[in-house]
C-alpha cells in the first residue's frame, strides 16, 4: 500500500468482490430468462396495457420483448441504478466521515498529505470501484447476451454500462461532498439516498404530471436514462452533464473539507 489510493482500494476489496459476484449473478439470471420472454409475444401486449404510472417507472418506449426493452425494464430502468447508487453512496459517505467516525483521520492527516489529496485519492478509489462493477456488468451482458441469443450492439451495451457507472459516480460524489462537509456518515447516507429516490421519481413521473414537467432536467436520472442509451448509444450531452456535476461535487468536497474543523 504505497499510497492512500491503493490503501482505499485495498479496504474496498471485500465489498467489491461481493458486489461484483452479486451483480454478475443478477445480470446472468435476467439473461437466462430472456429466451422464454422472447418467445412470448403476449408479454408485449401485457406491458402495453400496464397503467401509465407503472410504465413510466419501468421506463423505455420499445417493445418489452426486444433486447433493449427487456434489458431496460429488468435491469437499467431500476435495479442497476439502485444498486450502483447504494454502492456509490456507501463509498462516498465512508470516505471522509468513516475515517472521522473511527477517529483514524487524525493519524491520516498528521502525514504530509493535504486534505485535497485525501479527498481526491478517496474519490479516485471509489470511482475505480464503481467503474469495475460497471465493467463486470457489461462483460456479463456481452457474454451472457450472446448465449441467450440476444441481438443488440456491443456499443449499446457499453453505453448503458457507462451510463449507470456515471450515475453511480454522481451519487457517490454527492455523498462524498456531504461526508466532507459534515463528517456525519449516517446522515450523509440518509440524505444522499433520499435525494436519489426523489431524483428517480421526479424523472419517472415528470412526463405524466404537468407540474413536474419543467423540472425533469433537474433529475440526474433524466441525464442517465432520458437518452435511452440501449437504443441510441451514449449521448455526449447526457454523459457530459453527469460527469460535470460529479466534478462539481468533488471540487465542493475538497473546498468544504479544507474549510472545517476535523471532529475529535
Amino acid at each position: 500500500m504505497r499510497s492512500l489510493l491503493s490503501k482505499t482500494l485495498y479496504d474496498q476489496r471485500r465489498g467489491l468482490i461481493g458486489w461484483g459476484i452479486g451483480l454478475a449473478a443478477l445480470v446472468a439470471l435476467m439473461l437466462a430468462y430472456y429466451p422464454t420472454v422472447r418467445n412470448s409475444p403476449e408479454l408485449n401486449k401485457f406491458a402495453r396495457e400496464l397503467p401509465q404510472g407503472v410504465k413510466a417507472l419501468i421506463g423505455g418506449t420499445v417493445e418489452y420483448t426486444s433486447p433493449a426493452g427487456y434489458l431496460n425494464g429488468e435491469l437499467f430502468a431500476f435495479m442497476l441504478p439502485l444498486l450502483f447508487l447504494v454502492y456509490g453512496i456507501g463509498l462516498g459517505s465512508r470516505a471522509i466521515a468513516g475515517e472521522e467516525e473511527r477517529r483514524t483521520i487524525d493519524l491520516l492527516l498528521a502525514n504530509p498529505i493535504s486534505r485535497t489529496r485525501v479527498v481526491l485519492e478517496k474519490a479516485a478509489a471509489a470511482g475505480l470501484g464503481i467503474a469495475l462493477l460497471g465493467v463486470i456488468v457489461v462483460v456479463v451482458l456481452l457474454v451472457g447476451g450472446r448465449a441467450a441469443g440476444m441481438r443488440i450492439g456491443v456499443e449499446k451495451l457499453v453505453a448503458a454500462g457507462v451510463s449507470v457507472v456515471l450515475l453511480g459516480l454522481l451519487f457517490g460524489s454527492l455523498a462524498l461532498m456531504l461526508s466532507s462537509a459534515t463528517g456525519a456518515r449516517r446522515s450523509t447516507r440518509g440524505i444522499a439516498a433520499a435525494l436519489g429516490v426523489a431524483a428517480y421519481f421526479l424523472n419517472a413521473l415528470a412526463p405524466l404530471a404537468s407540474t413536474l414537467k419543467p423540472y425533469r432536467k433537474l433529475s440526474p436520472f433524466y441525464w442517465y436514462a432520458g437518452n435511452e442509451p440501449l437504443r441510441h448509444g451514449l449521448s455526449a450531452a447526457h454523459a457530459g452533464a453527469l460527469l460535470a456535476l460529479t466534478a462539481v461535487m468533488v471540487v465542493a468536497a475538497v473546498v468544504l473539507l479544507n474549510r472545517r474543523d476535523i471532529a475529535v
Binding site: R103, T104, A110, N111, P112
Partner: peptide
C-alpha cells in the same frame, strides 16, 4: 507536516 511527528491523544488505528 513532513517535519513533525504526531501521536494523537485519542489514538485510533486501522
Amino acid at each position: 507536516r513532513r517535519r513533525i511527528g504526531y501521536l494523537p491523544g485519542e489514538l485510533a488505528l486501522y
